[in-house]
């Protein structure tokens, strides 16, 4: 197996006296679909903000996409992809403008942007609506585009933060098709979700409770360990309501 894409050892973040992420140790390899679960307030968002180079850890070591989180945060940002339900594309820009904007942010030059835009519009079959404002496109198309734009600069890993929230059941599954395809091509996927059926689609899962790793394993192994049929039951057994902050 290749070099791990994420490797953390006792990664910790404190705000004052409060330990939000407590000694998180993970090793995630290339092409893995890694699910990151936890109740609201369990420390998921803080962990992701550290892993994406947006927040400096308090202690512990970590490298993401080959860069150290303390000394190479800018390198991390350039070599990862990120997509969330809340922040992805601009509704007021056209499809082409969105692609151009995000490609520019990731530092692609004009020639590369042109080339990538053409490829993307073709492969997503969006040529006809290239100059249409995003707002008027169906949700399924927007999601496809958002995902493709997040990995336009060919990162080693993409972070998907609740990418399927509020989406209809068919679009949700189409989105997972894209995740599978990308992972087959070797892209590492780090995904959070509140849909427990989606947890089952991951290669491995980490369940956070009160800032700590409560379980880290393959979904089948977790279900076997708890003697239950579904990830929903595992989650409910593990993720007891956190101590109200």
């Amino acid at each position: 197996m290749s070099e791990p894409v994420i490797h953390t050892d006792k990664l910790t973040k404190r705000f004052g006296d409060f330990v939000v992420v407590d000694a998180l140790s993970l090793t995630i390899s290339g092409g893995e679909i890694f699910g990151f679960l936890g109740a609201n307030g369990a420390g998921k968002t803080t962990a992701i903000r550290m892993l994406t180079g947006l927040l400096i850890p308090t202690s512990g070591t970590a490298s993401v996409a080959g860069f150290d989180l303390y000394t190479g945060a800018e390198g991390v940002k350039l070599n990862i992809g990120y997509m969330s339900q809340r922040f992805s594309l601009y509704d007021d820009l056209t499809v082409r403008e969105n692609i151009r904007f995000f490609a520019g942010i990731y530092g692609l030059n004009n020639q590369a942007i042109k080339e990538k835009s053409r490829q993307l519009l073709e492969s997503l079959k969006l040529l006809e609506v290239a100059d249409t404002r995003l707002a008027s496109l169906p949700l399924g198309w927007k999601q496809k585009l958002a995902f493709s734009v997040a990995i336009l600069h060919e990162p080693k890993i993409v972070f998907l933060d609740e990418p399927t929230g509020g989406v209809d059941p068919v679009t949700r599954r189409r989105f997972w098709d894209m995740i599978y395809e990308a992972s087959e091509r070797g892209l590492t996927i780090f995904v959070t979700t509140h849909y427990m059926d989606e947890a089952e689609y991951c290669d491995r899962l980490c369940i956070m409770v009160d800032g700590k790793v409560a379980a880290l394993d393959r979904p089948e192994a977790m279900k076997r360990h708890f003697g239950v049929e579904s990830m929903n039951e595992v989650f409910i057994q593990l993720a007891r309501p956190n101590k109200m902050e």
Binding site: A39, N40, H194
Partner: peptide, 14 residues
Amino acid sequence: DEPTTGVDAVSRKE
């Protein structure tokens, strides 16, 4: 209106 959107499975149950 969507009181449980973005809320985890345990809180949704409660």
